[in-house]
């Protein structure tokens, strides 16, 4: 199986996510787009982990370079959970203060 299949799919997902972040106005939807980006990264990580494992098979119970892929995918999942938690808290606060979650209305920082 070509590794590029996974990598290209991840790239496509990433760019769809970027589009979503830039084009969506609703705060929750922006967060969802960010999830797409993070997931594409996870695909890459796990794909490279598997690729590495296929190149250098692991031996005994511990110590194996290929685990870096899934391990960091797990870290990314954790970070994503944290990000959604804080992000939704922000959206809630936005809603409370502006009675709307359209992030283009939040421009009180403009120069």
């Amino acid at each position: 199986m070509l590794i590029n299949a996974y990598l290209l799919l991840a790239a496509v997902l990433f760019c769809i996510g970027v589009y979503g972040v830039l084009a969506r106005r609703n705060g929750v939807l922006v967060l969802m787009s960010i999830e797409l980006i993070l997931n594409s990264v996870n695909i890459n990580l796990v794909a490279f982990g598997a690729w590495w494992g296929a190149q250098q098979p692991c031996g005994a119970a511990q110590g194996c370079a290929a685990t870096i892929g899934p391990v960091f995918a797990l870290f990314v999942i954790t970070v994503a959970a944290a990000e959604v938690g804080v992000g939704l808290a922000l959206v809630l606060m936005l809603y409370r203060n502006f009675k709307s979650i359209d992030i283009d209305q939040v421009d009180s920082m403009k120069g």
Binding site: V21, L22, I103, D104, V106, D107, S108, K110
Partner: peptide, 14 residues
């Protein structure tokens, strides 16, 4: 163009 719109900044970033 001092919009303060975060997504325009994001666009620039990407």
């Amino acid at each position: 163009i001092q919009t303060g719109k975060v997504q325009q900044y994001a666009a620039l970033f990407f």
